[in-house]
């Protein structure tokens, strides 16, 4: 028996919808956000519409049941049922959407605030566009000494940073659950792997209060580490962050 085209389209959409939920929520154990699923389904629907309507005959076949429902006198009962259900469903949907909730409002968080071209760090005006990690060159010049610096950076990290950013640098430290936004996950390919070392130096040194005025208000609880650490300790921590995660700092030159 041939499945009517309208039903085919509905089945395809239902398959895609539940497919996403089964794959992400059940099999992979990583929830697909409702906002993203809504966007995915909107454009999947557009794609299904395109495939089902590019041909005139197939389009007629697709809309035939809808046309019959509206025009065919013998389908009066069904018509009345559908005409009652559709407004009710729309009303129900609107009610659910508009219902007050205790959920905190969603926030579009800016992960990478744009750095200023210069910043005042350790009492000096630093040009962030040109700033480089002074210890980075040791990586090639003296690998043993570099290893020692990374280890020193690790010690600073464990003493100061891991409570929030986690001992695996995955943003899942002991205090992480109490923070919103949660601390950054340095393992993620979208955080330090995308940034120059000068950027990290600026963020660590000046912390939440040093975030730029643009795109305020910020809700970062990152301390101003230049008040607690020495300058070279911050550079060493940066070496450790890249070393442990295996990422390389962003640069425009091939090595």
């Amino acid at each position: 028996m041939k499945i009517p085209r309208l039903l085919q389209a509905v089945l395809v959409l239902a398959g895609v919808y539940f497919g996403f939920i089964i794959v992400f929520d059940v099999i992979l154990g990583a929830v697909i956000p409702a906002s993203l699923l809504a966007m995915y389904m909107f454009f999947t629907t557009a794609g299904v519409f395109m495939v089902f309507t590019y041909d005139e005959d197939q389009t007629r076949e697709l809309v035939a049941p809808i046309k019959a429902l509206v025009e065919d006198p013998s389908k009066r009962l069904w018509r009345n049922i559908v005409f009652a259900i559709v407004p009710l469903a729309a009303g129900g949907f609107t009610y659910v959407q508009m219902q007050p909730s205790f959920e905190a409002p969603l926030e579009l968080r800016t992960i990478h605030p744009a750095p200023p071209s210069t910043a005042k760090i350790y009492g000096k005006r630093v040009n962030l566009l040109k700033l480089e990690n002074p210890l980075r060159k040791i990586e090639k010049e003296d690998p043993e000494k570099f290893r020692e610096l990374v280890n020193q950076g690790a010690a600073v990290y464990i003493q100061n940073c891991q409570y929030c950013h986690g001992d695996k640098l995955d943003g899942n430290g002991l205090y992480a659950a109490g923070l919103n936004p949660t601390p950054l996950n340095f393992q993620d390919v979208g955080t330090i792997a995308q940034l120059q070392e000068s950027y990290l130096f600026w963020r660590i040194s000046t912390g939440g209060p040093g975030l730029p005025k643009e795109a305020a208000p910020w809700i970062s609880s990152m301390p101003v580490w230049q008040n607690f650490l020495k300058e070279d300790e911050i550079w060493k921590v940066i070496l450790y962050l890249y070393d442990y995660t295996g990422h390389r700092p962003r640069s425009w030159e091939h090595e």
Binding site: P33, G171, N185
Partner: peptide, 18 residues
């Protein structure tokens, strides 16, 4: 890259990164 997450989704994922 940065998803719009409800608090429940945020908790389920353990952070803002998927």
């Amino acid at each position: 890259h940065t998803l719009v997450l409800t608090n429940e989704e945020l908790k389920a994922l353990g952070g803002p990164h998927h």
